[in-house]
Simulated assay, not measured.
Amino acid sequence: MGIIGSTLKPFTTQAYKEGKFVEVSDQDVLGKWAVFVFYPADFTFVCPTELEDLADNYAEFQRLGVEVYSVSTDTHFSHKAWHDTSPAIGKITYTMLGDPSGVITNNFGVMREGQGLADRGTFLIDPDGVIQFMEITAEGIGRNASELLRKVKAAQYVRAHPGEVCPAKWEEGEETLAPSLDLVGKI
Results as ranks from 00 to 15, higher is better:
Asn57Ser: 14
Val68Tyr: 07
Tyr94Pro: 04
Thr122Phe: 11
Gly98Ser: 14
Asp99His: 05
Thr93Arg: 15
Val110Pro: 09
Phe123Tyr: 14
Asp84Leu: 08
Phe77Asn: 06
Ile141Ser: 00
Asp56Asn: 13
Val158Trp: 00
Lys153Asn: 05
Ser101Gln: 13
Gly90Arg: 13
Ile131Ser: 04
Thr73Pro: 02
Pro162Cys: 02
Ser72Asp: 05
Asn57Pro: 01
Ala160Val: 01
Pro162Arg: 11
Gly65Phe: 03
Thr137Met: 07
Ser72Gly: 05
Phe123Thr: 05
Met96Ala: 10
Gly98Thr: 10
Gly163Met: 08
Asp119Arg: 13
His83Leu: 02
Phe133Lys: 00
Ile136Asn: 03
Leu97Ile: 01
Leu149Tyr: 04
Lys151Gln: 02
Gly129Leu: 07
Lys169Gly: 03
Val103Leu: 14
Cys166Asn: 12
Leu54Thr: 01
His161Val: 00
Val103Met: 09
Ala81Lys: 15
Met111Arg: 06
Ile104Leu: 14
Gln156Ser: 03
Asn107Glu: 13
Ala160Leu: 04
Leu149Met: 09
Leu117Phe: 09
Asp128Glu: 12
Thr95Met: 08
Gly163Asn: 02
Glu164Met: 09
Ala55Ser: 15
Ala88Cys: 03
Lys153Thr: 04
Gln62Ser: 13
Gly121Val: 07
Met96Arg: 09
Ala155Asn: 14
Gly163Phe: 03
